[in-house]
């Protein structure tokens, strides 16, 4: 898995010195222009320096953020949402991966059914769940009423706590199959002799799960965990399509609030400050992943 490196060691053809940059150059230029420039601009905007109404260095946006109750609520909603969604992804993902790893008839059919939600674009998933939870013609109420579990239709997306629960249900649905696929790949890579050895030592099902399966999955869990936290923390489409952040700010996430501040309330400095806080938080979360990946590829 470590090709190359030695090849351009001292003594290699000198004409090849500039060659690597021809290969990686276009990608780097595109990244700098399309991602780098806007990222730097966003930081400058957040300090009120460019593309704002009256440019001039100011920390007002950050000061305002620190005292804005709406941002505080949104931040804690986002944290709760990411924490809840990611832990459910891992739990359900692991359970389904274990089940799919057993000997099954028509396994590929189960597998297809298992990944299907993941293939739905996020905003589309939000719209579908919006109709599932619709108060009058929705599916959730149709079933609950028929089962006699409720007498009155439940106003799922009209009540703050139920709407939050609804958004979490939708995003758990769409996101867990990916975590499941990563964990399943990890399970399939565990050599059978480890389980045989554990069985010879008298380990039961729980013990071989605890002492063989879980430690072997450690790397996969870290990869899945970090990628998932990053994806969920910047997720936009599900909430935007399902509740638009409402009712009130009950399902407002940093991503949807930033969008509204920028494109609906025209507060670029304030919106950018919010996004910078989100980005910095995510980069900190990503450090373990970056370190693992870089050390493997160095």
């Amino acid at each position: 898995m470590r090709p190359s490196s030695g090849e351009d060691a001292p003594g290699a053809d000198r004409r090849e010195r500039w060659l690597p940059f021809l290969f990686v150059g276009p990608a780097i230029l595109l990244l700098l222009a399309v991602l780098g420039l806007p990222a730097v601009t966003a930081v400058l905007q957040s300090f009120n320096l460019v593309w704002v109404r009256e440019p001039g260095f100011s920390l007002d946006a950050y000061r305002q953020l620190a005292t804005d109750p709406q941002f505080a609520t949104t931040l804690s909603t986002t944290a709760l949402y990411v924490g809840l969604v990611v832990s459910l992804h891992l739990t359900i993902g692991l359970a389904v991966a274990l089940a799919l790893n057993a000997d099954l008839p028509a396994k590929w059919l189960f597998r297809v059914a298992a990944i299907l939600p993941w293939t739905v674009p996020d905003v589309i998933s939000g719209i579908i769940w919006r109709f599932v939870f619709d108060t009058l013609p929705g599916m959730a109420n149709a079933i609950l009423l028929r089962l006699g579990a409720v007498d009155q239709p439940v106003d799922w997306l009209g009540s703050p706590s139920l709407a939050f629960f609804g958004v979490v249900t939708a995003e758990v649905w769409r996101g867990y199959p990916f975590v499941m696929l990563i964990l399943l790949a990890g399970l399939q890579a565990i050599p059978a002799h480890l389980y045989e050895a554990a069985a010879i030592d008298g380990a039961g099902a729980w013990q071989s799960f605890r002492y063989v399966t879980l430690p072997a999955l450690r790397n996969m869990v870290i990869v899945a965990l970090v990628l998932d936290v990053i994806w969920e923390a910047r997720l936009f489409g599900t909430v935007y399509g399902m509740t638009g952040g409402g009712p009130g700010d009950a399902t407002q996430l940093v991503s949807t609030l930033t969008f509204r501040q920028y494109f609906e309330f025209f507060n670029p400095a304030y919106a950018s400050a919010m996004a910078v806080v989100l980005a910095v938080t995510m980069l900190i979360v990503a450090i373990p992943y970056l370190r693992v990946t870089m050390s493997r590829n160095a």
Binding site: P38, A39, A42, Q45, I230, A233
Partner: peptide, 18 residues
């Protein structure tokens, strides 16, 4: 790797202006 971590809402506003 890091550019993969940047949230879309950070970039899309300035990109729109550009």
């Amino acid at each position: 790797l890091t550019s993969q971590m940047l949230p879309g809402v950070l970039l899309v506003g300035p990109y729109f202006e550009l």
